[in-house]
Design a protein around this nucleic acid. Structure first.
Lengths: 151, 151
DNA sequence: GACAATTGGGTGAGCCGTCAACTACGTCTA
DNA sequence: TAGACGTAGTTGACGGCTCACCCAATTGTC
């Protein structure tokens, strides 16, 4: 049985902790300052990418790589907070649209600068371009492998 | 306002997605095969590090960098599953110990090989030693910065 | 056209983590 | 020794995610 080498442990534990800490900090920052979580943010960004601010649940789920159940729950909560509304789909009676509201647009416009600033401040500012490139490569390669065996 | 450059976006999104995907996969693997989650695993490892398999809640919380509330909830759940027991502390009547049970030892011994194997298979095998070193460095540096401003 | 299989989405239970408040004990200081 | 302050751990509410099902509509296929 091959246990992890010290270097492997160091990298693995570092990676896990980094995400935990960074994620937690970012979440608290955003939550406290703008009432828009990272997940909300991702949804709103994708909605504003379309001209009419409207997308099918499924397309949104695929784009964000979320399960449909998660999407359903999350949109329900966001709808409860008035950021989006659900809308029936005429062409396919099973389907539905998620539509951003004016309040949703206002929320993301208010939150976006803080979001980016926080990512910079907590992460980007402490990493060199070369390191960033390595990180991107690792991520893409490993994700590709993950997709490969057993999607 | 400085938005993220394409390289920065690529790295950031990659990093976030990598953790989400890898974490999810790993969690499902462990959960389905051994009933020991990554969090359980971490707790059990720390308990087996001490000769009598016993640790104060607080020490455990500090070691894992968990909030005391999280520790309390999690230990309660683990106790419900028979992996640990809570034990009063004689010296300090406020405190308490978490003690690993025989079932807990059995569980971690059964789970550990799979855990390591999964980390290897899903991550280590697709990353070079040089990349690993960069990852470890980034992690440590950014975590240090995080600790620095406003602990 | 009937009927199976697939697709789009919803629902409820259960685990998980955070936050804020709370209890109870300990320690320090006047 | 009283009161203030800090520490150890608990609790309950809440948001969030997954899993396992459910239902309705649609798309084959014969």
């Amino acid at each position: 049985m091959r246990w992890l080498t010290p270097e492997e442990q160091r990298a693995w534990r570092g990676f896990v902790r980094l995400h935990e800490r960074l994620g937690g900090r970012l979440a608290r920052l955003l939550q406290s300052e703008s009432k828009v979580s990272a997940a909300d943010f991702a949804v709103l960004v994708h909605l504003t990418d379309t001209p009419d601010g409207r997308q099918r649940y499924q397309d949104l789920a695929r784009a964000l790589e979320w399960e449909k159940s998660r999407m359903s729950h999350h949109i329900a909560r966001m709808a409860g907070r008035g950021m989006v509304v659900r809308e029936e789909c005429a062409e396919d009676a099973r389907g539905a649209f998620v539509v951003i509201t004016d309040a949703g647009r206002a929320a993301i416009e208010a939150a976006a600068p803080r979001h980016v600033e926080a990512v910079r401040e907590l992460f980007m500012d402490h990493v060199t371009p070369a390191e960033l490139r390595v990180l991107a490569e690792i991520s893409e390669r490993v994700i590709a492998k993950l997709d490969e065996d057993q999607s």
